[in-house]
């Protein structure tokens, strides 16, 4: 794992990707610090960070797109498969390398509150909790992009679908307020989702039986709940998709609140996608 980590980290550093990533993030943080703290006169550093989360839409795909798509394209993944090393370790090695690259600008950004404290009163606790939230949010998003990278051989396609996925998550909170709240509408939405899940399974496995089972497993409890407890369905769909609003979890960690739920939520998001990546890489061996 360490060898993969070292190789990946060095490759990001030798490559333009790492430099662009770090420069971009620092550039944005710098602009917001100048605008908000220096010119605007606010002492809140969290405000800077919450403005900065939008750059993840571009930067997380930039970092993640290479990880597996490029290996597949240049057929170097065969080396990884033939190494006496488990896929989990390979994936973790790559993931931690990306986190290490990401940690560099985060660490540098962490100097801003110290600098600002020279000119006024800074709420350190709030600033650093927010910075931790910022890092964990980035880690979760990078995991998503890494997973997207296993789905294709093209870095560009990987980046585009990652961007798409992150954009949907970014807008998720706004979207969740626009969905209709009547029980029947929620029911229909869930129904369509279940069918879509079956289709996704079919695309992944090309097996009609498994896909049908996947859809039915979702549909049976859905119908049972709907017909026994109709009222609970009111606005349920909007609520469920608002759970997927990853970006908003960061907001929970601003204002000096060390929100463990948000932290656990983001971490489990990252773990889940790292796990999916391992599965996707393993799956390729079985195809």
């Amino acid at each position: 794992m360490i060898s993969v980590f070292r190789k990946e980290f060095r490759s990001y550093m030798n490559n333009v990707t790492g430099a662009v990533f770090i420069a971009f993030l620092l550039f944005f943080a710098g602009i917001y610090v100048t605008a908000v703290n220096l010119r605007g006169g606010y002492t809140s550093f969290e405000y800077v960070l919450s403005n900065c989360t939008i750059v993840f839409l571009l930067l997380a795909p930039l970092l993640g797109m290479r990880s597996f798509a490029e290996e597949k394209r240049s057929k170097t993944d065969q080396l990884l498969y033939s190494l006496p090393m488990s896929v989990t370790k390979i994936v973790l090695g790559k993931y931690f390398a990306m986190l290490a690259v990401f940690a560099i600008p985060v660490f540098i950004t962490g100097l801003y509150p110290l600098i600002l404290s020279l000119f006024g009163e800074v709420f350190f606790k709030g600033a650093y909790i927010a910075l931790l939230g910022f890092f964990v949010l980035g880690a979760a998003l990078i995991a998503i992009c890494m997973f997207m990278s296993t789905l294709t051989e093209s870095q560009v396609i990987s980046a585009v679908i990652s961007f798409g996925a992150l954009l949907v998550m970014y807008m998720m909170n706004g979207l969740s307020t626009t969905v209709p709240t009547s029980p029947i509408a929620s029911y229909i939405c869930f129904f369509v989702l279940s069918i879509a899940l079956g289709v996704v399974f079919w695309l992944l496995t090309r097996d009609y039986i498994i896909s049908a089972i996947a859809a039915i497993v979702c549909l049976i409890p859905l119908n049972i709940f709907y017909f026994t407890n109709n009222a609970a369905f009111g606005g349920l769909f909007g609520k469920v998709i608002s759970y997927l609003a990853v970006f908003d979890r960061f907001t929970d960690m601003t204002g000096g609140i060390f929100d463990v739920t948000a932290l656990v939520y983001l971490l489990s998001f990252a773990v889940f996608f790292v796990y999916l990546t391992v599965q996707a890489v393993e799956k390729r061996r079985w195809s």
Partner: peptide, 17 residues
């Protein structure tokens, strides 16, 4: 795998190294 060294059809090389 520790007992096997493998050269696939396309040498799996990282060309930027």
């Amino acid at each position: 795998k520790r007992l096997i060294g493998y050269l696939p059809e396309m040498p799996p090389l990282y060309t930027d190294m």
